[in-house]
Nucleic acid binder design. Structure first.
Lengths: 237, 237
DNA sequence: AGCTCATGTGAACGGCTTTTACATGAGCCG
DNA sequence: CGGCTCATGTAAAAGCCGTTCACATGAGCT
């Protein structure tokens, strides 16, 4: 039977008991289905089984709910990136690329968070705590870039780590925004977004003087079959 | 005196005479001010001095208006990129970078178009003519990449031009989306988006084996005290 | 002049956001 | 237990928006 309140809350009396959480959850569902624009405050209330005015006891307005979601998104994002970076294990370059992939994975698997964070049209800088969360996430990329910069081949000037971080961020974000989501804004690609990004990062790192003689799409540590060295895009011509 | 119809149309009778155009113009204004989400069909009608039902004679619904704007945006975008590319003059790499800058310039100077094209949440692939316009714009980047690929240093495997084009696109799009707009979604940067992107592209090209012995942000012109020329921030090995 | 059809109007429906006055009942204090 | 208080939820209403429909207007053609 399914006449329960649809959000897992059992029968309830006048008070919901966990409305704020239920609303956030409902909003996530709705945003992932219809995008942040299609999401409706009233819908979320309905889904939680309360009147349309109830949400206002927990969020100043619709934007604040979306901002809350973006906030959580950045927190999960930070945690995911931290995990992917894994303090640079087993080696810096491998970990670095894992971070890029994590970025894409997040965009694909958490489209609702991703939308709220990057496509909701919220003035990011208006909300200090949101801004801070966003910066903590970026700090992971920056820390990784820092380590990578320190590894730059001797005899070359060190690229500014901050700049590297911004470059990596923009690549990841560009790929994720243009090609990364499951079903929206899809453009046909001759390869997976992951492979596209991996090749991009490898070429970039090579431009910085790193030796990147691994091939994309292979597990870390694999060596190309003996013989020619291939580029990050696969077979040489 | 300002009781004229606000969109430059002089007094008019029952018929507007140029409503479709006036609506598109009004929508552009509104979108650039309040984003594609804040834009309102009724507002556009008001601004054009007609009743809220009038727009329906020209657009099936609100989405179709936005799609029309995106369409025009892609056309202008294509034209701008074509101009920037200038068939590869004076040399391929220079022209290539000019294309990247044009991308940023477009995002900054035509935020309304840019929003409609990339952030409106429209299903790009639902509208064939929109899709086609988008692909014509991308074709410019692809053509440029093709020429660049042909120039790749001998002795290195040639990267697929399509992939290079996608890489450049994602870099440009990433930088533009994250840092490129005048006042929205601003994050603090230690450098201009243009310089950031230029350095990124130069490093990338060097990763492909190109010699890029110019420096970014040439306007600055200053040299590090003992610096040798080459590379986006200094000298390669 | 008269016809026709594209274009604009006014009114209406339903839905959304937000506010306000009121209802409920959970938690606390004696 | 009895009663108080305040966070939390409700109902109703105002104002806006998108969209539709029957109807008005007049531009352009014959």
């Amino acid at each position: 039977m399914s006449w329960r309140k649809d959000q897992g809350r059992a029968e309830r009396g006048y008070h919901h008991g966990n409305l704020k959480e239920a609303l956030l959850q409902a909003a996530l569902d709705l945003i992932s289905k219809k995008g942040p624009a299609g999401f409706t405050f009233a819908d979320a209330a309905r889904m939680a089984g309360v009147s349309p005015a109830a949400p206002y006891r927990h969020f100043r307005d619709r934007d604040e709910l979306i901002a809350s979601i973006a906030q959580r998104g950045f927190e999960q994002f930070e945690s995911l990136l931290t995990q992917a970076w894994d303090d640079g294990r087993p080696d810096t370059v491998t970990a670095f690329e894992r971070v890029g992939k994590a970025y894409l994975a997040f965009a694909r698997e958490e489209p609702a968070f991703y939308s709220a964070m990057f496509e909701s049209g919220l003035p990011v800088d208006s909300n200090p705590t949101l801004m801070a969360a966003s910066e903590r996430a970026f700090a992971i990329i920056r820390a990784a870039a820092e380590r990578l910069a320190a590894l730059a081949p001797p005899g070359m000037p060190r690229p500014p780590a901050m700049m590297m971080a911004l470059h990596i961020w923009s690549m990841s974000h560009g790929v994720a925004s243009l090609f990364g989501r499951g079903d929206a804004a899809r453009r046909k690609l001759p390869m997976s977004p992951e492979d596209l990004l991996e090749a991009e990062v490898l070429i970039y790192l090579r431009g910085l003087g790193f030796r990147t003689d691994r091939r994309p799409g292979t597990a870390a540590g694999d060596e190309p079959p003996a013989g020619e060295k291939s580029g990050p895009w696969g077979k040489p011509k």
